[in-house]
């Protein structure tokens, strides 16, 4: 079965991203496909490449990045929600005339249509939020 996961909260502040990660891992282990992980609302903050969590804690962004690399996950950050919150990839930073970018290369920026399309293409869409 194909799942699209929607993550609406940032890392650490809420458990939403952790629950989604554990769900994704378990789904893959059971032979299901994660069609897309879509990051929206404050969930876009999961994509920062600049977080430095304490060593005895989990690194939420890296953990997603590793899972994505291992299983070729399509991890999409909503561009509108990201721009509002100062989350930019290199291309977008150039376009907006900003002097820095902060999106981890494991994630890609795209529009909200990717969420709707994820809902259409997957067998189930599951929201993790607050």
């Amino acid at each position: 079965m194909k799942f699209t996961l929607l993550i609406n909260e940032g890392p650490y502040q809420h458990q939403a991203s952790d629950t989604a990660y554990q769900f994704a891992k378990a789904a893959i282990e059971k032979g299901h496909e994660i069609y897309r992980v879509f990051f929206y609302n404050d969930g876009v903050n999961n994509a920062t490449r600049l977080a430095v969590p304490p060593q005895d804690d989990r690194n939420i962004t890296e953990r997603w990045a590793e899972l994505a690399k291992e299983h070729e996950l399509d991890m999409v950050v909503c561009i509108a929600a990201a721009q509002r919150r100062g989350m930019l990839d290199a291309d977008e930073a150039g376009r907006q005339g900003k002097d820095a970018d902060n999106i981890h290369p494991a994630f890609r920026i795209s529009g909200l249509g990717q969420l709707v399309e994820g809902g259409i293409q997957a067998d189930r869409l599951l929201t993790f939020g607050d």
Binding site: N8, Y40, N41, G113, L115, V116, I120
Partner: peptide, 15 residues
Amino acid sequence: YALESLEVVLISAAF
């Protein structure tokens, strides 16, 4: 949430 949910709704109209 209300504002950003409405943005998804408006996009969904195109599908």
